[in-house]
Design a protein around this nucleic acid. Structure first.
Lengths: 151, 151
DNA sequence: TGAACTATTTATAAGTA
DNA sequence: TTACTTATAAATAGTTC
């Protein structure tokens, strides 16, 4: 379209690229709107220029988040993330209490502040930890029912 | 474009609407791709037809989630959720190690398995915990740099 | 810079198989 | 339906102002 046809590859000349971007972006937004209206389609469009500027289109009557959420429902993306968040919070609550409990217990036995225990132990712990992750998680799931509801 | 020009309003005839949808959707995807390639733009496009079928376009080399996330950063939507998640994961990693470390330390001093310590202590702990949450979090942020990189 | 112009290419509405 | 065809409308590349 235009005086000549151009190959579909990155336009190297920056000025030309920017001009083309402006023109075609306008065209794309128009086409998007038309499709949305003519065919009653729900559309979300997000464009970032090379310079980082963003523009977006979203079918009238909807918000981008709704379309994104619907998209995520279809593709399965992020659904687990939301579920996951709850688990994370739960596990955090459990671990916070557990840690606190252990710290107090330690103090009771040793009288010292455990936060000074050397970090070098951690490398050792890591291996052990990896081996016991599954077992650990099972334990936490059970502890869950007792420990929950902080935070 | 075509034998006649049509007004930009919902096409009432279902067959015509469906045909137009297919054609224009293809056109839109093509234009989207062209803009993306020609101008090196990062684009995400999500389309739902009236019948609920979804199709999407995403600039090559990216995933839709990345574009969505970037969009959310710009608009401010959901940022806290994503940032939050990272913090959650980090804090979990820290706490897991911390807990493990304390458990081992306890064993070293008492020879017993600490997992048997009564849960009744926890109610007491809760109050203390709530008071020290902020201080606690500061500590964890610092511990972070030392403890991280598990999981 | 940026808005208009215009020769061409593209997209597509309606028609046809 | 799902494809082709084609006359026409739109988009736009290169240009000019």
């Amino acid at each position: 379209m235009g005086r000549g046809k151009i190959p579909i590859k990155r336009i190297e000349n920056q000025t030309t690229r920017q001009v083309t971007f402006s023109k075609r972006r306008a065209g794309l937004l128009k086409k998007t709107h038309e499709l949305s209206v003519l065919c009653d389609a729900q559309i979300g469009l997000i464009i970032f220029s090379t310079t980082g500027k963003m523009c977006q289109y979203c079918t009238k009557g909807y918000r981008m988040e709704q379309i994104i959420e619907r998209c995520q429902k279809v593709t399965g993306t992020c659904i687990s993330e939301h579920d996951n968040r709850e688990h994370l919070y739960n596990e955090l609550a459990v671990l916070r209490k557990e840690t606190r409990r252990l710290q107090l217990s330690m103090r009771r036995y040793t009288g010292e502040d455990m936060s000074s225990i050397p970090f070098e132990e951690l490398d050792q712990l890591e291996h052990e930890l990896e081996r016991s992750v599954i077992k650990d998680q099972e334990r936490k799931v059970h502890a869950h029912h007792h420990l929950l509801n902080a935070f």
